[in-house]
Design a protein around this nucleic acid. Sequence first.
DNA 1: TTGCCATATTCACATATAAGAATATGGTAA
DNA 2: TTACCATATTCTTATATGTGAATATGGCAA
Lengths: 110, 110
Amino acid sequence: MTELSRFKADFFRALAHPLRIRIVDELRSGELTVQELGFRLGAEQSTVSRHLAVLRGRGILNARKEGQTVRYSAADATLFRLLDVARTMFNHQLSELQSTLADLKHGNSR
Amino acid sequence: MTELSRFKADFFRALAHPLRIRIVDELRSGELTVQELGFRLGAEQSTVSRHLAVLRGRGILNARKEGQTVRYSAADATLFRLLDVARTMFNHQLSELQSTLADLKHGNSR
DNA sequence: TTGCCATATTCACATATAAGAATATGGTAA
DNA sequence: TTACCATATTCTTATATGTGAATATGGCAA
């Protein structure tokens, strides 16, 4: 069971960077080259390439060589489901925060 | 949109450690004290406490003081759904790997 | 008060991760 | 061959994260 927890931790660490999250989000609509990603995200070529290597290394992305370019895509559409669940948690936290603020405003603190 | 990607990245980073994954898994069945977690996971008191602080700091866990102990629990059950989706991806990767190995065995490499 | 108990925090140090710049690789085109 | 082109890797340096040991905090118990 410790093996699975290590896998999950490594997997989450691969996603633990804003640029990598944005890369994955860009790939929702299909494959893109390193160049295209760099342009859309406004990031250095070497930076994008290294982050792509992290994601590919964890089996999160696939790379397909086509001529002199490489097209990256999500290896498993379940990834997007995962990000959607994360967004749900984000929304929950937001409403939590909102009601906490409302409580404070009405003096019902702690 | 960059704000959400930062939130997601921070959220995933909070989960990006085997011990923290195991902590969250232990909390599936309800709240536990720092001691209980330390015992179940075979980890140092200060180590457990610091990891709990990381998870609480991201709003992933709640802490409830009761007498001289503190009981930790998941702040949002959606968390478990997220971990289950991660397990699904793990299974997909495993079967992918399996068929790759089978292909190699039959000499259909690359 | 004094002494424990559960938890949190700090310390010292080691390892990991990040960035941009520079360079390497490998393939296509002239 | 020579010259690009897209991508990958390496280098240097900075910052973040991890650990166990030690110490601090805050409350209950004698």
